[in-house]
Write a protein that binds this DNA or RNA. Structure first.
Ligand SMILES: [Zn+2]
Ligand SMILES: [Zn+2]
Ligand SMILES: [Zn+2]
Ligand SMILES: [Zn+2]
Lengths: 171, 171
DNA sequence: GCCGGAAGTGATACACTGTAACAAAGCCGC
DNA sequence: GCGGCTTTGTTACAGTGTATCACTTCCGGC
């Protein structure tokens, strides 16, 4: 999945559907801003956990993060990671992928109530995030028909991303 | 939703949004038919696990089922339950709810590729199942736009079912 | 600067969820 | 019945997430 935006900031208009890793600097900035707004602490541990999620090649599990942050002389227990992840999810900076027990940085800065679609590539393991007005409205109709009041929803699609499909075709 | 048809088959047209337990007899019959078709064994254990899933008040976890099936003198280990559940899911008789680690009987007899929407009531804990052509087509468009080839997807909505909402309103 | 409450972290233990490996039992076609 | 396959039992273990409590850090008020 592609890394969006380089230092010289080329035109990156996202007509492509493939995942663009959130720019580490951008998401960090967003984190700091959000924490200032809400008057909560963006502590070192929280920053490190966010960094780990952003920097990981594949969406890591909580234990992966704990291991990555631990060194001889400093052990970060999974429970600390979970707390930081809860915090980051509360702020909408990180999402949990229920079907994988993994965590991804939010790539969209969408509102909390807005539905997102996670595209999980079973070949490369990458997870892309997109929004879908069509799904949103269709789901709204369906829920209304069912008399169900939604609080939040998860939509995770497993399959093959464009890059992996192309690679397979060339092979 | 809905279990159509009781013994005296009253009009049960399901304008209501709340979960209607699948008729135990019907799903059992379907299981036997499917197993005959595919020439696989519908063993006692598999039947008991299916029964347990159908009969449970709330969607049970695998360990709940194991406990329910165990008695003094006969212990059913979780691993056996998982195997039976895998079997039943393969046949499309049971679904796993990723956001809850719970299992529900299929209430629709839909095809394997067809998308379903799970409606999870956070008040009563009931889980209803419905299909949504709108979502289906909307999601198709979105995936195409993203260049993503889907294999299968999960869509789980948490909120309040009609019954619980009414109950709350009257209170 | 100091104090006191609130928030965050460390550490341990534990509960819950799921899988691997191998042996024993049951089924089925020959 | 024999031989191969499927299913189940049993044990052990890996992976995921939470409860508890003590300790530290932060922050606002004095
Ligand atoms: Zn997001
Ligand atoms: Zn891929
Ligand atoms: Zn179903
Ligand atoms: Zn309800």
């Amino acid at each position: 999945m592609s890394a969006a935006g380089h230092s010289h900031d080329h035109a990156h208009d996202h007509a492509h559907g493939h995942s663009c890793k959130a720019e580490p600097a951008a998401i960090l900035a967003r984190a700091e801003e959000l924490c200032r707004e809400r008057a909560v602490q963006f502590t070192a541990l929280r920053r490190e956990v966010l960094d780990a999620v952003v920097a990981s090649e594949k969406p890591p599990g909580a234990y992966d993060i704990a291991e990555r942050l631990s060194r001889p002389g400093r052990r970060v227990a999974p429970v600390s990671v979970y707390r930081a992840l809860d915090f980051l999810m509360e702020l909408g900076l990180v999402h949990r992928i229920a079907s994988r027990n993994a965590f991804v940085p939010c790539a969209h800065a969408h509102g909390a109530s807005e539905n997102v679609v996670f595209l999980i590539c079973r070949t490369c393991g990458g997870i892309d995030e997109t929004t879908s007005p069509e799904v949103e409205s269709g789901l709204g109709k369906t829920l209304k028909r069912a008399g169900f009041t939604p609080a939040h929803s998860i939509l995770e699609v497993e399959g093959d991303c464009g890059a992996c499909r192309d690679k397979a075709r060339r092979a």
